[in-house]
């Protein structure tokens, strides 16, 4: 599996894929896409490292324990639900910032929610793939 071509290709593809995944995440609210699909793309990018350079490199590239990512993703999504509670609104009510942030169009708790989904999906897929490859 450790072919030079694959690892070179990976090195080139990786940033592109990650970028694309973020693009999918952001545009999801208005066009097809969203946190789930974005997360899957990002996860496959890391999985590609695993297939090209091995598990250790992939783990190193990820920096976090995938299980922690799962927890973090859940926490983000969860936090987006808790924030409105502070403001006296029901759980998961969408709150929007008034100012538009460039690029991100609008910022609000649904975006945070989608971000949570994104992180979680990366964590979930990589937990599975890593665990399966360690066998």
């Amino acid at each position: 599996m450790n072919s030079l071509i694959l690892s070179t290709a990976t090195r080139l593809l990786l940033p592109l894929m990650l970028l694309y995944s973020v693009f999918l995440l952001i545009r999801g609210h208005n066009e097809p896409g969203g946190g789930f699909v974005g997360g899957l793309v990002a996860a496959s990018a890391i999985a590609l490292i695993k297939f090209s350079s091995g598990l250790e490199r992939a783990r190193a590239a990820l920096r976090f324990d995938p299980i922690t990512l799962v927890g973090t993703g859940l926490l983000f999504a969860f936090a987006s639900g808790l924030l409105p509670l502070v403001a006296g609104m029901p759980f998961l009510t969408a709150l929007w910032w008034d100012q538009k942030i460039p690029v991100l169009l609008k910022a609000g708790t649904p975006v945070l929610f989608d971000l949570g989904v994104y992180v979680l999906v990366v964590g979930v897929v990589l937990t599975m793939i890593f665990a399966l490859s360690e066998e």
Binding site: I67, V70, G73, A94
Partner: peptide, 19 residues
Amino acid sequence: AFDTMGEITVLAVAAIGVY
């Protein structure tokens, strides 16, 4: 969004399960 909350919880649990 509440459904989706549940959905990602399912994913998280499945990951724990596989692990």
